[in-house]
C-alpha cells in the first residue's frame, strides 16, 4: 500500500534531471555531481567507481571480509601515496587485489618481477586498465577522502552517491532521519 501510486516518482525525476544538468556543466567525467566541482579529487572518485574499487573495498573503503575474502581497509591503511600508486598499478601478489596498469609484469616489472617470476602469485588483472594519471588521481582521492577517516558517515556517503538512492540512509543519525520520507520505508512491518 505504501507505494501504491509511486509518490516518489515525480520528485525523483526532477532530482535526476537537475543532477544531469549540473554534471554536464561542471564535471569532466559526467558521472558525479555530488562533490563540489572545485574538489580536485573528483577525477579520482570517478576512477574509484569506474575501476570497481567499490566491488571489494566498498564505497567507504573499509573493505572487509565476505565471500570474496578480505579486502583491506583503506581507512585504516598506513600506505603512502606512492605505495598506493604502486599497488593499484601492480596489484598485490598472492592476493585478490588486481593490477590496473597496462603491461604490468610484461613490459614493466612489478615488485621486481615479470609474469614468470610471479608465477602462482600473479595477481588478477583488473576489469579495466588505468592510465598513470588515473592511478595518481585515485590515490589522491583515497588519501584525501578515505585514508585515516573513522567510521563512514552520512555526509561521506551522500557525497559519494547520487541522492536518488537510499544507499546512505543507514548512516543517518536519528536527528537526520525525520526530514526524509524515504527513510521510513520499513515501517509497518
Amino acid at each position: 500500500m505504501f507505494f501504491s501510486r509511486f509518490p516518489a516518482a515525480p520528485s525523483m525525476l526532477l532530482v535526476s534531471v537537475v543532477a544531469l544538468n549540473f554534471s554536464i556543466g561542471t564535471t569532466a567525467f559526467g558521472q558525479s555531481a555530488q562533490a563540489p566541482a572545485s574538489d580536485p579529487t573528483n577525477a579520482g572518485k570517478a576512477v574509484f567507481s569506474k575501476a570497481n574499487c567499490v566491488g571489494c573495498h566498498k564505497w567507504h573503503g573499509n573493505g572487509g571480509g565476505g565471500y570474496g575474502g578480505d579486502a583491506l581497509s583503506l581507512r585504516k591503511t598506513e600506505l603512502t601515496r606512492d605505495q598506493i600508486i604502486e599497488i593499484v598499478g601492480c596489484g598485490r601478489p598472492g592476493t585478490g587485489m588486481p593490477f590496473f596498469m597496462r603491461g604490468a609484469y610484461d613490459e614493466v616489472k612489478c615488485h621486481g618481477m615479470n609474469r614468470q617470476d610471479a608465477g602462482a602469485q600473479m595477481p588478477p588483472e583488473g576489469g579495466t586498465f588505468l592510465r598513470p594519471k588515473d592511478i595518481e588521481a585515485v590515490a589522491d582521492y583515497v588519501i584525501a577522502h578515505i585514508k585515516g577517516a573513522g567510521e563512514p558517515t552520512y555526509a561521506e556517503c551522500a557525497a559519494f552517491f547520487s541522492s536518488t538512492s537510499r544507499v546512505c540512509d543507514v548512516y543517518k543519525t536519528p536527528a537526520q532521519k525525520p526530514d526524509d520520507a524515504t527513510a521510513s520505508t520499513g515501517k509497518g512491518q
Partner: peptide, 13 residues
C-alpha cells in the same frame, strides 16, 4: 501497469 506494491524486506537491515 503496476497495480500495487508493498515493501516486504528492508535493505537497510
Amino acid at each position: 501497469q503496476v497495480a500495487w506494491q508493498r515493501t516486504v524486506a528492508d535493505p537497510d537491515k
